[in-house]
């Protein structure tokens, strides 16, 4: 295993407009493999929009999203791919801010559905499946094993047969992460995974994310408000405000960055300044811009 992390994702000049509203404005950053890259920023900074562009839910107005697939060595331009292909071909997994589980389906079923593409291939247009041919039965067995591995990992094995809608909130969050991992992603995008968790659950989540990074060797992209999570486990932080990047660096550097402090805490002079000037000040203060 090489210790130098290779480049996983390169975002170049990403811009997203909704009508007149500019949600993301010329954003560029990079994320490396085997690293946790956090995207933070005040509410409405455009973090989730970045995720939606990355995972094919929105087509960016301008910009390039380049993914270097570490396993196959292929390069994918995510902005050109049809929604579901980002997950299917480029292997980018994600979770959602407002958890999206298959509520009426059991925990195990959720994890098996995540392996749809592998199983679908093995079932040969369902014919091998209908006839229960060994080729399919073996694939199903493997799918169950992978699901079991992740259930053990997130501590849901005891509740394997529960309907996912009946799980407690923290379990639902972890199940969603496990489900995304069952697609065997090379990059995992987590949208506020710690939201609504209590401090103990938050700590467990830290361990889980670190383990995903270290044991599975994939890159994580994390949107999070919980600073204990962000500062504790991030290798690299990108700070957004009003759709623009105001800082980019390791946790220590970001913590000290005046632009970040200003964006989070605000400055009194701000109110007297005309908005254009205030914005200029904000951009000039980034410093870290390449």
């Amino acid at each position: 295993m090489s210790t130098t992390a290779e480049m996983l994702l390169t975002v170049e000049h990403l811009t997203m407009r909704f009508g007149g509203l500019v949600a993301i404005d010329d954003l560029s950053f990079e994320a490396r493999n085997r690293e946790i890259t956090s995207i933070i920023g005040p509410n409405g900074a455009g973090k989730t929009t970045v995720f939606n562009c990355l995972t094919g839910f929105y087509k960016p107005t301008v910009g390039r999203l380049i993914l270097n697939h570490p396993k196959s060595g292929n390069t994918y331009f995510l902005e050109r791919m049809e929604g579901f292909k980002v997950a299917q071909v480029a292997h980018v997994g994600r979770t959602f801010q407002n958890i999206r589980l298959f509520g009426q389906m059991s925990v195990l079923e959720n994890l098996i559905v995540a392996q749809h593409n592998v199983l679908m291939k093995a079932s040969k247009f369902s014919i091998a499946g209908l006839l229960r041919l060994p080729v399919y039965m073996r694939a199903e067995r493997e799918a169950i094993d992978l699901a079991t591995y992740w259930m053990d990992k997130v501590g849901l094995t005891d509740k394997a047969d529960w309907d996912s809608q009946n799980l407690p909130y923290g379990d639902q969050r972890r199940l969603e992460i496990a489900r995304a991992m069952c697609t065997r992603p090379v990059m995992l995008c987590l949208d506020e995974p710690a939201a609504g968790l209590n401090p103990r659950e938050s700590l467990e989540l830290n361990d889980l994310l670190v383990s995903i990074r270290d044991d599975h060797g994939i890159g994580l992209l994390l949107i999070e408000h919980d600073m204990s999570v962000v500062m504790g486990i991030s290798d690299h932080i990108v700070v957004l405000d009003h759709g623009r990047k105001i800082a980019d660096g390791d946790p220590a550097a970001v913590r000290e960055d005046p632009a970040v402090i200003k964006a989070y805490l605000g400055e009194e002079e701000d109110e007297e300044l005309p908005p254009e000037v205030a914005q200029d000040l904000a951009t000039s203060g980034t410093g870290g811009k390449p």
Partner: peptide, 9 residues
Amino acid sequence: IACRSLGMN
């Protein structure tokens, strides 16, 4: 939406 995020068509 969750289906699409799992690479299902």
